[in-house]
């Protein structure tokens, strides 16, 4: 399973948000897209998953043109957790996760025994199985994010796209979500593509990082090769030092003092 995008151009109305974008994604890897606000990170993610139409270029999923996919067929290959999502507050956790099985069902059928098994698996993998009877409104922010990830997981996609999965969460829930993503990737080999704002987290969890600036790809590669003092200045206009601490696999970013 791989995704190949070439010369992608995406825009709304007269505005071109993303241009000349080449991206190559592999199954089994965690790829993180970073960049300043408004640089087009989410737009790239949406174009790659057909939530948005692209104007130029091409996207191939397993050598098959993205436009040629049936809606449900695509939903069985890629799962997306959009930045904005909502569910009626009284929906139960297990029912919401159950929606992940929609791409496998015809319009009149309910869950089969196989579906139930996969729903249970997705809930166990994300640690929400114990609260399956709770309603969404009873879940905390971190819990509900795990429930949504379980929903995407129940789609059994080869690659899971997460658009800012940690925004609006406090630091402990952010770390918990990142740990979960890493665990899912390691245990079930699912590919992950996500947009993140926290660069330290990106450094630690990603296999590859793509930096986007003003709708164009600035650089791409292994985390420590991409996140450098130079990149931080050129892309974010932030001064910092990249610090290696003893006993840690990934370096830390020490920003210049605020005042």
């Amino acid at each position: 399973m791989e995704i190949d995008a070439c010369g992608l151009q995406v825009g709304y109305g007269d505005i071109i948000v993303v241009d000349e974008m080449d991206i190559h994604l592999h199954k089994g890897e965690i790829t993180t897209i970073i960049g300043p606000n408004g640089s087009g990170k989410s737009t790239v993610l949406k174009a790659l998953t057909r939530l948005l139409k692209y104007r130029k270029g091409s996207v191939y999923l397993n050598q098959k043109n993205l436009q040629k996919f049936e809606s449900k067929e695509l939903a069985r290959c890629v799962g997306v957790l959009p930045q904005r999502h909502s569910a009626p507050p009284d929906f139960k956790v297990k029912d919401l996760v159950g929606y992940g099985r929609m791409p496998y069902q015809s319009w009149y059928k309910g869950n089969s025994a196989e579906d139930e098994k996969i729903i249970d698996w997705a809930m166990k993998a994300t640690g929400v199985y114990e609260m399956r009877e709770k309603s969404i409104q009873e879940c905390s922010g971190g819990e509900s994010q795990r429930v949504w990830i379980a929903t995407v997981l129940a789609q059994q996609p080869d690659i899971m796209f997460l658009d800012e999965p940690t925004t609006y969460l406090d630091i402990s829930h952010q770390l918990e979500t990142m740990r979960l993503v890493k665990k899912l990737n390691r245990e079930s080999g699912i590919g992950v593509v996500m947009v993140l704002h926290d660069l330290s987290q990106a450094l630690e969890v990603s296999d590859r990082i793509v930096v986007i600036k003003d709708g164009k790809k600035y650089s791409e590669g292994k985390p420590e090769e991409v996140i450098t003092q130079k990149m931080m200045w050129e892309v974010y206009h932030v001064e910092c030092e990249i610090v290696w601490l003893k006993g840690r696999k990934a370096p830390l970013i020490a920003y210049k003092e605020i005042c």
Binding site: T49, R50, E70, V80, P82, H85, A87, W107
Partner: peptide
């Protein structure tokens, strides 16, 4: 009654519904 499934899916937001394969 044929609308039940899509009515439910639309409640999850357009992008989520779309990514679940709903037209």
């Amino acid at each position: 009654f044929f609308c039940i499934k899509s009515a439910n899916a639309l409640q999850l937001g357009d992008e989520m519904a779309k990514s679940l394969g709903v037209k």
